[in-house]
Nucleic acid binder design. Structure first.
Lengths: 133, 133
DNA sequence: TCGTGTGATGTTACTTTATAACATAAAGCT
DNA sequence: AGCTTTATGTTATAAAGTAACATCACACGA
């Protein structure tokens, strides 16, 4: 376990945290190219993959995009609410719900390993006003 | 509302039903090219999109792939269990679970419109044996 | 300390997935 | 029928992701 990639990972994590919403891998790539002009896609994917494994970044499957983990640290299945109006993604911990879901599929003999729970809709701000965030 | 695309949609739906598991859009494309050599990606994506809107096909977000709706007909949020060993995707109706999930995000003022609930893991057959399906 | 092996990381080139923009054609209306 | 509207099909290209291999940092033994 070396440390070579950790700088890159930290930089990407910073970018994702600074960004308002979810960022595609290529959003990240182009942002990084400002300071590292020669960077290539696999470098970004490598780092994102490492960060994802470490539970510090989540891929938003239905957006093909990535967000910094908002609950920082521990591995956990989370519920993502995605505002289709302003793009904001909120992460929620819902251990009970995940447990219920696991129990549900286990009834058919299925052994669950990874949960993808994403809800699209409108966030309270966009629902309320025309501010468009 | 014309009928021009319905033949194509029916053909794609047939393919998806015949296929064992989830098919990528390009799997569908190449299958269609056997009989329609000149078909192009947007035709497939148009048809898949229409079928999806009609609730007859679901996109499996975490696989970038598509399956025929197994509950045929009505619009509904469903739970997909995806076997990472054999690729089988099962669709389950779980209105109560979807309701719980909706209630959960509504607590934050979010108005849910579309649910993506996918569980990766191992199906009972793959869990049991080495048959590999 | 220095060579050497090991495994993560970076690079090149490419594949897969998806869509913008425009051309075409079908159905409805008068 | 001729015109309007809107879905559909085509061309071309963009976006997302990865295989395969080269490179380099670190660990370990001599």
């Amino acid at each position: 376990m070396t440390k070579r990639g950790e700088k890159m990972q930290a930089e990407i994590l910073g970018l994702l945290r600074a960004a308002g919403g979810a960022q595609s891998a290529y959003d990240v790539l182009y942002a990084l190219r400002v300071t590292h002009p020669k960077i290539a896609p696999p470098t970004v994917y490598n780092a994102l993959s490492a960060l994802t494994k470490a539970g510090r970044v989540h891929r938003v499957e239905s957006l093909k995009a990535y967000i910094a983990c908002q609950c920082d640290g521990a591995h956990h299945a989370s519920v993502l609410s995605i505002c289709d109006a302003c793009g904001t993604v909120e992460e929620h911990l819902a251990p009970q719900l995940v447990k219920t879901l696991s129990g549900f599929v286990e009834e058919t003999g299925f052994r669950p390993q990874r949960h993808v729970i994403e809800v699209h809709g409108t966030c309270s701000e966009c629902e309320a006003g025309t501010d468009g965030h």
